[in-house]
Design a protein around this nucleic acid. Sequence first.
DNA 1: AATATAAATGAAAACCTTTCTCATTTACAG
DNA 2: CTGTAAATGAGAAAGGTTTTCATTTATATT
Lengths: 135, 135
Amino acid sequence: MESQDLRKAGLKVTLPRVKVLEILEKTKQRHMSAEDVYKALLESGEEIGLATVYRVLTQFEDAGLVSRLSIDGGHAVFELEDGSHHDHLLCVKCNRIEEFVDEVIEQRQKAIALEKGFDMTDHSLYIYGICRHCQ
Amino acid sequence: MESQDLRKAGLKVTLPRVKVLEILEKTKQRHMSAEDVYKALLESGEEIGLATVYRVLTQFEDAGLVSRLSIDGGHAVFELEDGSHHDHLLCVKCNRIEEFVDEVIEQRQKAIALEKGFDMTDHSLYIYGICRHCQ
DNA sequence: AATATAAATGAAAACCTTTCTCATTTACAG
DNA sequence: CTGTAAATGAGAAAGGTTTTCATTTATATT
């Protein structure tokens, strides 16, 4: 029941918000740009403006419902937040995105921040390469 | 003697290229956006177009004279290449940028790419936080 | 159920960084 | 010194994202 998630997040239950959340949950492709979400909405017969899609995704990010990936150069990509922190591998040929978790890297990052006197708030790690399929 | 560096890189020695290189070498701030470089040029009395600054920086990147950092969301930042690979720590308050190298992380990244069947071409790692000065 | 009101939306314009176009200028090989 | 390919400047265009503002909608209140 998406409307509960929205209410919990302090957001009014509006048609655009419900439909964007549905798209994110139902689409097989886990990583979607605002444009991807917008097109999926059109295909499912919903006439929701692109500006609203951007607004809703940003609100979802603020509410912790989705994460935004800021990939090298291009546009932002969103993924449903499932509580599990992870980093990403990106195929530079087909744009496939894979996820990974590495505790060693997580620990080293914390240690480095500490060494440098930084109070770490976040980090972003992307490994770029050519995936199995594209080699 | 910058003109030698340019010639070695296979670039004609033109005023804009010499001046951009000078700015990158003389400015205390190691990390500069295209706009920063453009403004510095104006301040030093050079009338070089912004489009040229972008072109020159991209050529320098291709030639290996500078590296381009693609920081979260915003604009690109350039730094003179000194041959040493390193990653970055960014202060989310004052935008200070610090550098670090960590062999453990480097190795783990390679291992993860291998595991996932990726032929790694590059990676980007940024640690965000609040620096000593801003805490 | 009707209403008031603060919030959300759509459409288009604005924004920002970066790239492109094209006429003009420049570097440098011959 | 001259010819030619390459580089430049100015402005337009591109591409993703945000803002503006009039209109619509959700929901708290009668």
